[in-house]
Design a protein around this nucleic acid. Sequence first.
DNA 1: GAGTCATATCGTAATATCTTAATATAACGT
DNA 2: ACGTTATATTAAGATATTACGATATGACTC
Lengths: 125, 125
Amino acid sequence: MSTEAKSCKIKEIRAIDLDRYESVSKILSALSNKTRIAIIEAAMNYGEVCACEMQHALGLPQTTITTHLRKMYDIGLLKQREVWKYSYYSVNPEYERLVSDLLDCNANVILPSDIPRSKNKAKRR
Amino acid sequence: MSTEAKSCKIKEIRAIDLDRYESVSKILSALSNKTRIAIIEAAMNYGEVCACEMQHALGLPQTTITTHLRKMYDIGLLKQREVWKYSYYSVNPEYERLVSDLLDCNANVILPSDIPRSKNKAKRR
DNA sequence: GAGTCATATCGTAATATCTTAATATAACGT
DNA sequence: ACGTTATATTAAGATATTACGATATGACTC
């Protein structure tokens, strides 16, 4: 009937190199875990956190906490300061802004998890 | 020798409820994948993207693209507009700001992947 | 009605991540 | 020297995610 909307703008979008997103995806992976978000928020709020503190605050075994801290340290999200037998971790300055932006939107985020979102074109057989 | 730095501020950090971070972690999970970041960036740049366009731009099979689109749609990150046989996806307005903030930091992010970061206190046996 | 196109769902194999016990280490107090 | 404390590493099972072939649908064209 109409001449418009009969085709998508196929190939108008030029080839995208996925490797461009390697680093962001790594950072976001590190941040896509409840426990790690909790740790990183505490690190932001308190300036730095000690591994043993997070153990108490989160009620998780020591190895679990250390593993998460290590993961964030490995990709450079956290930096480490060792004093006596304690290990203090803080958010690496270069990521402070990103992290704080992310945490800010925590309150705003409302997941439409209850809203049924299945308008299947292809019905199951 | 010194009286300072002999203890961490144990238990000063009060108990943290991990469920608080359920929604953010879901959003971040949806964003922690190269392909999905590529799709969402294209959706931001072009206003909306058609599934078949992303297929061409990314050079990935149709099912792969659809699966990723569906995932982002399911958690509410993308909204869908169906015209004829085409399916256009765009970033849900409520997430536009967050997404654009995240994409902004893509350029800035430099992963210290090459820097050796193993200062193991506990050496392997 | 057969063929095509864009899209969606299912099933599954490969891969990655999470959690945690077992274990190790370094530094301290006794 | 032994016990304790804080932390780190390794290993392994459980669980989740990813990529994608096979397949189905709906709407068009011929």
